[in-house]
Amino acid sequence: MSGGVDSAVAAARAVDAGHEVVGVHLALSRMPGTLRTGSRGCCTIEDSMDAQRAANKLDIPYYVWDFSERFKADVVDDFIAEYSAGRTPNPCMRCNERIKFAALLEKAIALGFDAVCTGHYATITVDEAGNRELHRASAWAKDQSYVLGVLTAEQLAHAYFPLGDTPSKDLVRAEAERRGLSVAQKPDSHDICFIPDGDTRGWLAERVGTATGEVLDRSGAVVGSHEGAHAFTVGQRRGLRLGTPADDGKPRFVLEVRPKENTVIVGPKEALAIGEIAGVRYTWAGLAPVDATTPFACDVQIRAHADPVPAVARLDGDEFVVVPDIPLDGVAPGQTAVVYLGTRVLGQFTIDRTVSAVPVPA
């Protein structure tokens, strides 16, 4: 129970369904903030108190479990390491993968619980053979299946998402009001939970340091300088402070980050078009295809709120390779690609390499 309206209503529905429910709030920071600022941040003391009030209203036991050390190692330190390597990580994916459905689930199973129930908007179905499948929520505008794409078949067997069939968040808030839950109108959390002020560049600078480097165009010409490559991500336009304008006068965007050389490569917007993505760190959300080495049609989604794009996927040796029907825009290594078959989440991989759809001019 995060202290938000979704997990509170999910817990209430689990109680209504006849389950023996225990509310658990995860303490993910050794020094949590006391109060939230609107929709920024989470895991504050206020959030813990909101979760407890909801548990009291539902008359269920409530505990706070300290996962701060593992969260720091598996999510925060990973975030720093990925940016330092020139990649753009998704900490919400890592949290679901390594904390909520790994560390939390492991402890829950050890204590005799059957499943972890959360307020995510996604659904789980069971096929004729009894195999579980992860599917999109009924309301695509609120669908959160993308951030759950890291779940494995074993984890899906112990997951429960009571909100998946709810058509809108407004209905969840109205239900919370009817149930007398004080979090009914509480704002949703946004941004990275451990960077509540939203200043990712400043946060990284404090932990990685700064070092002056060059900004290059695709021909290798120096067009500016920066104070640390880790502060940039593919597709970025703002904050480049380039001293040399483009020949065509158009804005330039970050195309690549090279941390070893401490350089940033920029170019025109059209150069952000990506014709192929691939990665070796992949998992299947349920049953894997019988022969994934044979190219198959699918949809690929590269951000939580991006539209799915028709594509062809295959396993090529150790790599999961996806070729979209139309180029993807501004893909960065480190992002997660989630592959769908219709509404079903087939699997995911961390993007290691991209192939531009626009060749570098000679």
Rank of each mutant, 00 (worst) to 15 (best):
S2M: 09
V5E: 14
V5D: 15
A11V: 07
V15N: 08
G18W: 14
A27N: 12
S29W: 10
T34G: 10
T37H: 11
R40M: 13
M49Q: 14
V64W: 10
F67I: 02
F67E: 11
E69K: 13
A73H: 07
F79C: 01
P89K: 04
N96I: 10
I99C: 03
I99V: 06
I99P: 07
E106P: 03
L111E: 15
G112L: 04
C117Y: 01
T125K: 00
L134N: 11
A139E: 14
K142Y: 09
V147N: 08
L156Y: 04
T166I: 15
L171T: 08
A176H: 05
R179P: 14
G180A: 04
C193K: 13
F194Y: 03
D197C: 12
D199Q: 12
R201G: 00
R207P: 10
T210S: 01
E214H: 04
G220K: 04
V222L: 06
G224S: 01
H230E: 00
T233H: 11
R241Q: 12
V257L: 04
N262V: 00
K269G: 10
V280T: 15
T283E: 14
V290I: 15
D291C: 02
A292V: 14
C298E: 07
I326D: 14
G330P: 10
V331I: 13
P333F: 02
V338L: 00
V339Y: 02
T343A: 15
V358W: 05
